[in-house]
């Protein structure tokens, strides 16, 4: 994947670029808004990571300009501000995701991969898909039936949505915050790891009698369904 990082803090951008390199992605760095917009319009990127407060040109303006020109490249906004109003403004200006500093690199990486994935699956026919399948597990979105190895599994509504989200993003790490935001649809900071209990319940149902867990825990990051 090719990523553009627009961030005025050199340490942060170097940290992101280094992490991305380790994860197998290449990245370009722009130190101010003007250079960022120039690179974003002249080069082709899979994902843009844009800081909100930038010299020369505000991060939101870059995204607005790109969207105005019909450029749909997924953009993730980084910000030191964290209130709802800012988040709403960020997403309204055309950002795909909003991440408040400080963040764990794993969180950013997961979001970058999901954002890139979402674009490519929606470009194919992923959006109209009603049947999700990984290995011997199938999930039917219409009949809301889940089967593993031919055996049907009875899931509660939340467990179903959790599994659905994980399956839709199979092969990429999904963080706990992403699960809260997408499965429960609330942006908030849980003081305890409430998600872990839900995952372990889901696991106890779908892994019944099997050795290897279907949903794998990625330490310090989140969960993944390996393809």
């Amino acid at each position: 994947m090719r990523i553009l990082i627009v961030e005025d803090d050199k340490d942060v951008s170097a940290y992101i670029a280094k992490g991305m390199k380790e994860a197998g992605h290449t990245s370009d760095i722009a130190g101010n808004g003007k250079d960022g917009l120039f690179l974003a319009t002249t080069e082709a990127y899979d994902v843009l990571i844009i800081d909100r407060m930038l010299p020369e040109l505000d991060g939101l303006r870059i995204i607005q300009t790109l969207r105005g020109a019909g450029d749909p490249t997924p953009a993730i906004i980084l910000s030191a501000l964290g209130e709802v109003d800012d988040r709403v403004k960020g997403l309204r200006s055309g950002g795909d995701d909003y991440l408040v500093k400080p963040f764990a690199f794993a969180e950013l990486l997961a979001r970058v991969e999901v954002a890139a994935n979402r674009r490519s699956t929606s470009n194919e026919n992923g959006a109209g898909q009603t049947n999700l399948q990984v290995g011997d597990l199938t999930l039917d979105l219409l009949s809301r039936a889940v089967k593993r190895g031919g055996q049907s599994i009875d899931l509660q509504a939340t467990e179903f949505r959790l599994l659905e989200y994980l399956l839709k993003n199979k092969g990429t790490v999904v963080t706990r915050t992403m699960l809260l935001e997408n499965v429960w649809d609330y942006h908030f900071d849980p003081q305890t790891n409430v998600i872990d209990v839900h995952i372990s319940r889901l696991r106890s149902k779908i892994d019944k009698g099997r050795e290897a867990p279907f949903i794998r825990t990625v330490r310090g990051a989140g969960y993944i369904i390996d393809v």
Binding site: D9, D11, V12, A80, G82, K101, P102, A104, F105
Partner: peptide, 21 residues
């Protein structure tokens, strides 16, 4: 307060990231 958030959290984040590495 935005400047505090920006100016203080950024170095804090940097420190945290170094520790993570």
């Amino acid at each position: 307060s935005d400047n505090i958030a920006h100016d203080l959290r950024t170095p804090l984040t940097r420190m945290r990231n170094r520790i993570e590495t």
